[in-house]
């Protein structure tokens, strides 16, 4: 039971970080391997504020959302925008370059060590239930994940911004003709995805760890969530992330000798059998 819950909490973190990638990849068709960088930025913002400036943990969270969001806006304006029409390969190479630079820069400023994080007392400890011990922080993660998932799904389907995003993605030219500022919609979407990644990165320091290699270490996990969940599919990403989280935690606990092998194998099989993702809609 504890393992299941840990897995769900891990999955929620993966969801928070990956959902932005799901949108850029699935809706805007941008293969952004550098997505984990935004999560890392969120993580470092949180840790630095907490440890060096003495800001309380929960108060660091808004900064961990806003800063990566702003970084996202700047990068989108300066660089990403010019590559929306480029081939998958160009996007891969470009974003890989960003990852390398981010990893090196982080090394330079913060060193290679894992960043420590001390949770406030009210978020640590465990709740003892019959049959399971549940970490308070894990519960907090799960709730945060659900709130974000519901909020996102609602905003994409119900709000006018969501409608404009879907229109812009469906057919850019028509959307422009309807007076939608496609550039602005893409920029805001990119920023939102980056901000959510930052949130996930900050909340994930305790569970995922934080060091300069973060964007590379978890890159495959983010990609698995998106490919399995089906690009651009928020609920699909959620299910995929939960599945992956539980499978990963359980796999490492019960069959440590094969490690992550199963995860990769499952990903490859899904890609072969259902290239549009487990929860994705088939493209004609």
């Amino acid at each position: 039971m504890t393992i299941l819950f840990d897995g769900i909490a891990f999955g929620m973190l993966l969801f928070l970080i990956s959902v932005g990638l799901s949108v850029t990849l699935g809706l805007m068709n941008f293969v952004n391997l550098a997505h984990g960088v935004f999560a890392m930025v969120g993580g470092y913002v949180c840790v630095v504020l907490l440890n060096d400036w003495g800001v309380p943990f929960l108060a660091t969270i808004p900064f961990a959302i806003i800063v990566p969001g702003l970084v996202g806006v700047v990068l989108e304006r300066l660089l990403y925008r010019r590559l929306y029409e480029a081939s998958d390969l160009d996007q891969v190479l470009f974003s890989l370059g960003l990852v390398f630079m981010a990893v090196a820069a982080t090394h330079y400023f913060f060193g290679a060590r894992q960043q420590p994080l001390h949770l406030p007392a009210f978020l640590s400890g465990q709740i003892h239930l019959p049959g399971a011990d549940i970490g308070v922080y894990r519960l907090f993660l799960v709730i945060a994940g659900i709130v974000v998932a519901v909020g996102l799904q609602w905003s994409v389907i119900r709000t006018s911004f969501g409608a404009r995003l879907r229109a812009a993605v469906d057919n850019q030219r028509t959307a422009r003709g309807l007076g939608i500022d496609v550039n602005r919609v893409f920029m805001l979407t990119f920023a939102l995805g980056s901000a959510l990644a930052g949130l996930g990165g900050a909340l994930g320091v305790e569970m995922l760890g934080l060091d300069p290699e973060f964007p590379v270490k978890y890159l495959v996990y983010f990609l698995i969530v998106v490919t399995v969940g089906g690009g651009g599919n928020i609920l699909g990403s959620l299910w995929a992330a939960l599945l992956l989280g539980v499978a990963d935690v359980a796999g490492k606990y019960y069959v440590p000798q094969i490690g992550a092998f199963i995860i990769y194998a499952i990903m490859v099989v899904i890609l072969i059998v259902r290239p549009q993702g487990l929860f994705g809609r088939a493209h004609h």
Partner: peptide, 10 residues
């Protein structure tokens, strides 16, 4: 290396 990649693509 990363910078080279970015410049190369652009």
């Amino acid at each position: 290396l990363g910078l080279a990649l970015v410049l190369l693509v652009m």
